[in-house]
């Protein structure tokens, strides 16, 4: 049964309002629905007011000890300050996803991690709603990592969002799908390139 043991962690960061806490919450909820152990540790208070927001999500097949992660296996950076803070902490061989709409890829100093550059704001604007860039990011990240199933993610929306926002669920699902599609296409292209 050893092959079934797994442990994932991610630090998601951006500026307040970019929605990193919401997507962290969603991925944690979806993993819980799938029977995993999860912890979701958000920043709160002073950091949230006008500064950066971040959360740490751990998903495991076993009971989770520390919800605090110093060196994550993956990170999502939605803006430059987040990349500068958390980029260097990602473990070698880990995954670094950056929002290339707001971050110049020359700022990425790591060459020992897998870089996933997604222009989430541009994609969101192109699809008519810049507010959904966090969901684009979520879709891309989950498509890449497969930590949770898309269906669990969709089903989590109504649990995480307040009832007064439930009318927005379809557009959020669409944004997640668009983010996932972007990663699928990129991966197909790079496979073709290598041929």
């Amino acid at each position: 049964m050893d092959s079934k043991h797994f442990y994932h962690d991610v630090i998601m960061a951006g500026f307040g309002g970019q929605g990193v806490l919401a997507i962290g919450n969603l991925i944690a909820y979806a993993a819980m629905k799938e029977g995993r152990h999860v912890t979701y540790l958000p920043t709160y208070g002073v950091e949230m007011r006008g500064g950066t927001a971040n959360c740490t999500v751990v998903i495991s097949s076993k009971e989770i000890g520390s919800p605090i992660v110093q060196r994550p296996h993956s990170a999502i950076s939605m803006n430059l300050p987040s990349l500068l803070k958390y980029g260097p902490r990602v473990l070698p061989g880990g995954l670094l996803m950056v929002n290339s709409s707001l971050i110049d890829l020359n700022e990425v100093s790591r060459n020992d991690v897998e870089l996933l550059a997604i222009p989430v704001n541009d994609i969101a604007i192109r699809n008519g709603n810049p507010k959904l860039s966090n969901m684009i990011a979520l879709g891309a990240f989950v498509e890449k990592t497969k930590w949770v199933g898309m269906e669990s993610l969709f089903a989590s929306l109504e649990k995480v969002f307040d009832e007064r926002h439930h009318a927005l669920i379809p557009s959020n699902i669409k944004a997640i799908q668009i983010g996932a599609e972007f990663v699928k296409k990129t991966e197909t292209n790079s496979t073709n390139d290598s041929k």
């Binding site: 919450n25 944690a28 819980m32 152990h37 912890t39 979701y40 540790l41 958000p42 989770i64």
Partner: peptide
């Protein structure tokens, strides 16, 4: 404390 109070778990 703030850690246990603010974090989410099942």
């Amino acid at each position: 404390d703030a850690l246990i109070g603010q974090m989410k778990e099942p």
